[in-house]
Amino acid sequence: MLKQIFLVYSFLSIAVLPSLAQKNKKSFPAEIGMVSYTYRNSFSKDVAKTLDTIKILGITDMEFSNLFGKKAEELRKLLDERNIKCSSFGVGYDDLVNKTEEVAANAKTLGASYVRVAWIPHKAPFTLEVAKKAVEDFNRAGKILKEKHGLTFCYHNHGYEFQPYEKGSFFDYIVQQTDPKYVSFEMDILWVFHPGQDPAQLLDKYGKRFKLMHLKDLRKGVKGDFSGQTPVENDVALGTGQLDLPAILKAAQKAGVEHYYIEDESPNITKQVPQSIAYLKNLQM
Rank of each mutant, 00 (worst) to 15 (best):
M1T: 04
K3F: 10
K3E: 13
Q4S: 08
F6C: 05
F6S: 11
L7C: 09
S13E: 10
I14T: 03
I14Y: 11
I14D: 03
L17G: 01
S19N: 15
N24C: 13
N24W: 14
S27R: 12
A30C: 10
G33I: 15
G33M: 00
M34E: 06
M34K: 06
M34W: 00
M34F: 05
S36E: 08
S36M: 05
Y37I: 01
S42C: 12
F43K: 03
S44M: 09
D46F: 07
V47F: 05
T50S: 02
T50R: 01
L51G: 02
L51D: 05
D52W: 07
T53L: 09
I56K: 15
G58Y: 12
G58L: 08
G58C: 10
I59R: 13
M62H: 09
E63K: 05
E63N: 04
G69F: 15
K71S: 14
K71I: 09
A72I: 12
E73I: 12
E73D: 11
K77R: 14
K77Y: 07
L79E: 11
D80R: 07
R82Q: 02
N83M: 10
S87Q: 12
S88I: 13
G92V: 04
D94I: 14
D95S: 10
L96M: 13
L96R: 02
L96Y: 08
V103D: 02
A107I: 06
A107K: 02
A107L: 03
K108I: 13
T109G: 04
V115W: 01
A118K: 03
A118L: 10
A118G: 14
P125V: 03
L128W: 00
L128R: 03
A141W: 03
I144V: 14
K146F: 09
K146W: 07
H149M: 07
H149Y: 15
G150I: 09
F153M: 14
Y155E: 07
H158K: 06
G159K: 00
Y160L: 04
Q163L: 12
P164Y: 01
K167E: 01
K167S: 02
G168N: 00
S169F: 00
D172N: 00
Q177F: 08
T178Q: 11
E186S: 10
D188F: 03
D188K: 05
V192E: 01
G196H: 02
Q197C: 08
A200D: 06
Q201R: 06
K205Q: 11
K205E: 08
Y206S: 14
K208Q: 14
F210E: 10
K211M: 09
L218W: 01
R219L: 03
K220L: 08
V222E: 05
D225L: 03
D225P: 00
T240I: 05
D244T: 01
D244H: 04
L245A: 02
I248P: 08
A252S: 15
Q253S: 13
K254H: 15
A255T: 14
G256A: 11
G256Y: 09
E258Q: 14
Y260H: 11
I262W: 13
E263L: 01
E263Q: 12
E265N: 02
S266T: 05
K271W: 08
Q272V: 13
V273E: 02
V273I: 15
P274R: 09
P274Q: 10
S276R: 09
A278G: 11
L280C: 06
